[in-house]
Design a protein around this nucleic acid. Sequence first.
DNA 1: TTAGGGTTAG
Length: 514
Amino acid sequence: MIKSPILQSLVSSRDDITHNQEAVNTFRGKEQEILYLLKRCNDVDEFKQIHARFIKLSFLCSSSFSASSVLAKCAHSGWDNSMNYAASIFRGFDDPCTFDFNTMIRGYVNETCFEEALCVYSEMIERGIEPDHFTYPFLLKACTRLKSIREGKQIHGHVFKLGLDDDVFVQNSLISMYGRCGEMELSSAVFEKLEFKTAASWSSMVSARAAMGMWSECLMLFREMCREKDLKVEESGLVSALSACANTGALNLGRSIHGFLLRNISKLNIAVHTSLVDMYVKCGCLEKALHIFKKMESRNNLTYSAMISGLALHGEGEAALRMFSEMIQEGLESDHVVYVSVLNACSHSGLVKEGRQVFKEMLKEGKVEPTAEHYGCLVDLLGRAGLLEEALETIHSMPIEQNDVVWRSFLSSCRVHQNVELGQIAARELLKLASHNTGDYLLISNMYSQAGMWDDVARARTEIATKGLKQTPGFSIVEVKGKTHRFVSQDRSHPRCKEIYKMLNQMEWQLKFE
DNA sequence: TTAGGGTTAG
């Protein structure tokens, strides 16, 4: 029983056709109509049935154009297993053209099957099909995601040989590929050679630095970009810059970008809003972040995880849990990042019961596979609350590999709660996993010194010295009234150092009292 | 058919 009107129309067209020239002519006339219907079809089963009819009819006469269109429709549909089906169509082609190879590469990249995309490209080269300027942006994206710099460089060579190195899309893809693979000099070299630097070229440079966590370089480039005349600054570059502001505490610049966005873009999209929320939250303006969040027309998981982790950062664990409930009520499904944010919020607000419950529900639902991050949060939650035995049991119950972070978190809790016996277990496991980490030896040494075990302190310190390890002091940055202040651990160089440490002592005392 | 964007443990 065929319910679909589209299929009914096709069946009647097939019934009319007989194996003669008249039928062929009829089909030729129908071909465009079939392609039109195929393009409009939104359902995988419907597509498969139409495709089956298409095959039956097309042995009479089919243009490679039609076949390529069918393949493209399938490869870019986003349906479940669409690429498997697309591959079966593709394998049926005797002489796939450049467009067909591009379709397959693009399809695989969109489905995050990057290695498959590279394999299709290899086959393309082996079969002597010449790539074009559409091939490389997709392919370079695959290299970027795989961090395959070796393949990326080889492909750059092909681009050069084929004379496609003057295509602006290919150039920008190269900038992005090199930048995100950590090859900043090569990325800049491609950028500097550009005859016309477009908004996307700048954006590729800025966002690659943001993706690598090079926040100050990112902002430097962003400022340079803003000085360019006749350049229409687009949202993507601004989003990366906002991310850099968030991570460096550059509130003033973040505010300016927000102002620029409001003045120049009529309707801000969800990504821009999310980065604004994140920027305000990380720069200390929780209320402003909440205001933007509440005014948003629609929100997704990324928006919620930014807001939930923001609330956690500000010590608002219960509000973070309420936000999580709202997200579920809004019909969104929690993903692994949101769970990390929620568990983290519980951990930092001492919400042990709630955190346990969230973790239990996550396992019960089974939609999100627990990762080391989730276990890390749970161990941290239990450890901070002094439930060291339960934290240790949690580590032992992990169905995945225990990593250094989990043991470090547990060790830290053992130190805080002065349990040297369990701390020694953690220290042993940690040193097995991550050697040459100065911070770990210091953590171990501090634990022993608190317990007055001076021989063990000396052993840990000797270990640091004999291994020649050096510790980079940690720091935090805050911007107050347009001025950036950096607080480096143990730093005494500030002119008002005495007052700062007096205030810190006072705060510590008050916290202990509370 | 093509480039560039947001969230996450310790």
